[in-house]
Write a protein that binds this DNA or RNA. Structure first.
Length: 355
DNA sequence: AATTCTATCAACCGCCAAGTC
DNA sequence: CGACTTGGCGGTTGATAGAAT
């Protein structure tokens, strides 16, 4: 069912995805989308190939995926579509909202195909609708060890309580730019916290599913505190703001880098900080990241970064902390912002700049 | 209780089409 | 045009849970 993690010859991880990896992927894709699957793992801090990331997202992590038992209607639809389309699973999946081609394919091979075969042999067996196939029985009794429904896993580990506070969100289809509302249905992890409220639907929202007020705060904390994400926090820590938490960690563990190892920072000139760029169009490698208050401390340790856009809004308002060993010579970074969200144009600029 | 068998499904692999240079 | 990259698709694998012996 799950594959033992292993690495390929390039050192890329294979096999089962861990909750931490899922969190990284979710965090990255929800904010920046899947602009390039091949490059994405590098920026998301994942040691996976792009294909694996895409598959994980498409088949498991993306919102509004329906999991669990198939309804009679769904099964009939699959059977009918398979009859007319053959093994064109992605086409079939397109007709069943929330179901992935992989899942439908699996369901076909493990349940429907056999059932059809049986039915063609003994027609009377068809009448016994109470007799669930073994797969469905298993599905009922089994909660996957690493499932989005499992309260112990990734998402709820992030912040169940905060998720419950959500009252509205608009989700865009990441691939097609269409908007989708998520409504409460059957306890599916994704649908439950993503309740809609018509009065609050934001049209044209550029990212896959952003509630700017809520999601930014959660994801920014998630992204900017990678080392603290899965750590137990004491009662005192829970009352601190994200910035205070980071400061506390820095004080408590001065030698422990708080910057994620995969996160790299523009290092235009540590010894002579550049002034803020005043124009978006003029942001370059030398000016994209600068400092408003402090950039490089006397001991040559980066203490904070902050950058500004033309209108003055900061896109890096939360400082990054790192010891000198984590300052790379060239630029490459997951773009983390705490302000509303980056405009599509600015996102595009940043992506093209990095690539 | 121990062992073997079977079903499941997440993930991998290779191929292909479309797009870009 | 051909080479290359990328995303997408369908077939297949293999680790595991649970059933059967």
């Amino acid at each position: 069912m799950v594959r033992t993690p292993r690495c390929d010859k390039n050192g890329l991880k294979k096999g089962t995805w861990t909750p931490e990896e899922d969190t990284k992927l979710i965090s990255y894709v929800t904010r920046y989308g899947c602009w390039n699957w091949r490059q994405l793992p590098r920026f998301a801090g994942l040691s996976r190939c792009g294909k694996s990331c895409r598959l994980r997202w498409m088949n498991y992590l993306r919102p509004n995926i329906k999991r669990g038992n198939y309804s009679k209607e769904e099964e009939e639809k699959i059977i009918n579509l398979h009859e007319s389309l053959g093994n064109r699973w992605s086409t079939i999946a397109a007709q069943l909202p929330g179901r992935t081609d992989n899942e439908i394919k699996n369901h076909w091979h493990t349940n429907l195909k056999k059932r059809l075969k049986q039915n063609s042999v003994t027609h009377e067996e068809k009448q016994d609708s109470n007799d669930l196939p073994r797969g469905e029985k298993r599905q009922k009794r089994k909660e996957p060890s690493h499932s989005l429904k499992n309260p112990e896993t990734t998402h709820e580990a992030i912040d169940t309580a905060v998720l419950d506070r959500r009252t509205n969100v608009v989700a865009g289809d990441i691939n097609h730019g269409t908007s989708t509302e998520y409504v409460e249905t059957d306890g599916n992890f994704w649908t439950q916290p993503f309740l809609t409220d018509d009065s609050n639907i934001t049209s044209g929202f550029p990212s896959p599913f952003m509630d700017s007020e809520y999601l930014c705060s959660v994801l920014d904390e998630l992204l900017s505190c990678p080392y603290g994400l899965f750590e137990e926090e004491d009662e005192y820590s829970n009352n601190l703001t994200p910035s205070e938490k980071r400061q506390k960690r820095l004080n408590d563990q001065p030698n422990k880098p708080l910057l994620h190892p995969s996160t790299q920072i523009i290092d235009s000139s540590p010894s002579s900080p550049q002034p803020c760029s005043s124009e978006l169009s003029s942001i370059t490698k030398d000016t994209a990241v600068t400092t408003s208050t402090n950039m490089v401390a006397d001991d040559n340790v980066v203490t904070s970064f902050e950058a500004s856009t033309e209108n003055g809004s900061n896109f890096w308002t939360e400082p990054f902390f790192a010891d000198n060993s984590y300052i790379p010579s060239d630029f490459s970074a997951p773009f983390i912002c705490t302000d509303e969200y980056l405009s599509p144009a600015f996102d595009e600029f940043l992506c093209s700049y990095v690539l």
